[in-house]
Nucleic acid binder design. Structure first.
Lengths: 148, 148
DNA sequence: GCCAAAAGAGTTGATATCAATATATTCACG
DNA sequence: CGTGAATATATTGATATCAACTCTTTTGGC
C-alpha cells in the first residue's frame, strides 16, 4: 500500500483532478502554442487569427460585438487590435451612425492573409481532430460553448 | 431565403464554428473571469490558485514539474511566481541534490490561504457544474485532458 | 432643448504568455 | 579528471488579459 497523503494535500488533489477551470486553461495553453506554431510562417498568432476571422464580415462589426464573440474583455480587444492595425491588417473606423462606436474593417492585406491562413488552419485542425479519435469533437465543442 | 454569404466570409464562418482552439480560448477566458471573481476576496486569481495547488506537496516539486502540470511554459512559471513570492505565499529554494533545480515550497501563509480558498472553489465549482447539467462534466474533463 | 443616466470605447497598472536567448550546473565520455 | 553536451532555470521583449477609471456620445425624461 502507498503512504497515505498528508491531510492538507488531499483537497488539493481533488481540486487538481476535477477543476474545469484548470483543465480548460491547460488545454487553452497547449492549443494556443500549437496553432501559434502553425501560423508562425504567416507572422500571426492563433489569437490574432481568431480575431481577424471575427472581423471578416461584409458589414463590419463593432468592438463590443467582436469582444463578445471572442468572450473577451473590451479593453483586451483594444490592446489586441494595436499590432494588427500597425501591421496594416485592419483599420478602426468611427461608426457614422453612432460616433461612440468603432467599426473594425479588414484591409486588403488582412483579407489576403486570412486567405493564406485558411489552409494552414484546415491542415492543423484536421491533424488535431485525428489525434482526438476517442473524443467526440462535436460534444467537446458543445460543452465549451455551454461554458462560454 | 437569406442572402448568400460573400465568398470570402464562407471559410471564416466554418472556422469560427468549428475551431477547437477558439472555443477553448473562449471558455478559458470566461472561466478565468468567473473564478477570478470568486477568489477576489482572498486576493488571488484563478491561475494563482491553480499554481498554489500545484505546489501543495509534502515533497516540493521543481519548476519543470509544476510547469508540466499546468501545461505552461517554464518561463511563464518563472514570471508567475514573482507576485506569489513577493506576497510571502511561497519560496523558491535551491535543490541541494541538484543545484540547477529549484524546489517550490509553500509558506505557512500560502497553506493557510489554500485552506481558505478550498471552500470557495468547492462552492463555485459546484455552481458551475450545476449550470452544465446537459453536459457530461466527466467527459469534458477527459476531452480537455486529451488535448493537454 | 436640457440634463442626468447609460452606453461605447480608451488608458493605466498589474499579471500572464511565450519565443529567443543567456547562465549555471550536471552528466557523459574519453 | 576535464571538457563538450545536456539539463534546469532566468532574462528580455512583445503580446494578452482584466479591473478600475476616464472620456465621449447618445438616449430618456422632463
Amino acid at each position: 500500500m502507498s503512504k497515505p497523503a498528508n491531510d492538507s494535500t488531499v483537497p488539493t488533489r481533488h481540486i487538481h483532478d476535477h477543476c474545469l477551470c484548470l483543465h480548460t486553461q491547460r488545454a487553452a495553453r497547449a492549443l494556443a502554442r500549437r496553432f501559434d506554431e502553425a501560423f508562425r510562417p504567416l507572422g500571426i498568432t492563433s489569437g490574432q487569427f481568431s480575431l481577424l476571422n471575427a472581423m471578416n464580415r461584409e458589414t463590419p462589426r463593432s468592438m463590443g460585438e467582436v469582444a463578445a464573440i471572442l468572450a473577451m474583455d473590451r479593453t483586451t480587444l483594444t490592446a489586441n487590435l494595436k499590432p494588427l492595425e500597425r501591421q496594416g491588417l485592419m483599420k478602426i473606423t468611427v461608426d457614422p451612425a453612432d460616433r461612440r462606436s468603432r467599426r473594425l474593417v479588414l484591409t486588403a492585406a488582412g483579407k489576403k492573409l486570412l486567405r493564406a491562413a485558411a489552409p494552414v488552419w484546415k491542415r492543423e485542425h484536421a491533424a488535431l481532430e485525428k489525434e482526438l479519435t476517442a473524443i467526440d469533437a462535436n460534444a467537446l465543442r458543445a460543452a465549451l460553448r455551454a461554458i462560454a
